[in-house]
Design a binder for these strands. Structure first.
Ligand code: SF4
Ligand code: SF4
Lengths: 143, 143
DNA sequence: TTAATAAAAGATAATTAAGTCTTAAATAAA
DNA sequence: TTTATTTAAGACTTAATTATCTTTTATTAA
């Protein structure tokens, strides 16, 4: 569904978003440990999220990464878009080049519903929606 | 969503399934041309489908590949399973190792619905369902 | 101002996926 | 039985993704 890089990105963002108030900046090591990801690769992904203004970073002692803006206004779709590009639009069953609504491939009408389902979910699920579930103990992030 | 190999497999199977009665065996070249795929790579994929009893093959002049069994009893899920493995079960949003229904990650409840939607569709859409749409001109396979 | 800390940047390496090429085996028709 | 045809099998190449390593830059605190 998503690349590993994208999964790490989602994991990392959820972890940072679920940090307690007053301590909302996390270092690379903490993040990689928390989400069980390779540290150096995670660094690359976080850098990329910083470039896309989804995270901000501070160097030096007590530095680290923090969510850029309000987690309730950051949607999963933005993370996926940032790392994997718009697979919501491009990811399809047959991958024909010259297809369209009025010249669809035979599985288009079947897959369209699923893609819209997925897109709708990603576009409406915010980081705070998910982070809250971790903080209230409904869901878990640890491996 | 799916690997390229899997997309080629689905394309190829639909093409073969939509051949007119009496001429239901297609050669590699025809198939690769019809679905616009690299010939040698397609050969590998077809070989793999033959091993999984989704196609049967005949060597020599007038040989080629034909659907093994009744297209109305072959479901897209079988093709996907054959090439990509059970991503229906494994493909998930965060990819945690130690998660379960009663220890779910924060996006599980969101993704579960989509995965079930996709699985349901693949499990209930047969090759003849799709091939018929090509033959009746409702849908198109050409690039 | 120096030392320690932590991210940024870029090079490099490993792994997997995608694709090609060559030779062998099977089949059909001449 | 010979030749042409076509798939099978396996080695090989290329490209993309995943992952690591090294050096540089920014920041903090002693
Ligand atoms: S018609 Fe739809 S499902 Fe088919 S190839 Fe085009 S976008 Fe993909
Ligand atoms: S809880 Fe569900 S969505 Fe989350 S990692 Fe496990 S299977 Fe995937």
């Amino acid at each position: 569904m998503f690349s590993k890089a994208c999964k790490y990105a989602i994991n990392a963002m959820i972890y940072i978003a679920s940090l307690p108030k007053g301590n909302q900046r996390a270092g690379l090591k903490d993040i990689a440990t928390a989400i069980n990801s390779p540290e150096a690769f995670t660094a690359k992904i976080l850098q990329s999220l910083v470039k896309d203004d989804l995270l901000n970073s501070v160097k030096g002692p007590h530095g680290g990464f923090a969510i850029c803006g309000n987690p309730s206004e950051i949607y999963l779709a933005q993370l996926v878009e940032s790392i994997d590009g718009n697979i919501l639009l491009t990811g399809c069953a047959l991958g024909l080049k010259k297809c369209s609504e009025d010249h669809p491939c035979p599985v288009h009408y079947k897959f369209k519903a699923i893609r819209e389902h997925l897109a709708g979910m990603l576009l409406t699920t915010s980081l705070s929606d998910v982070a809250d579930r971790v903080n209230t103990g409904i869901s878990f992030l640890k491996h």
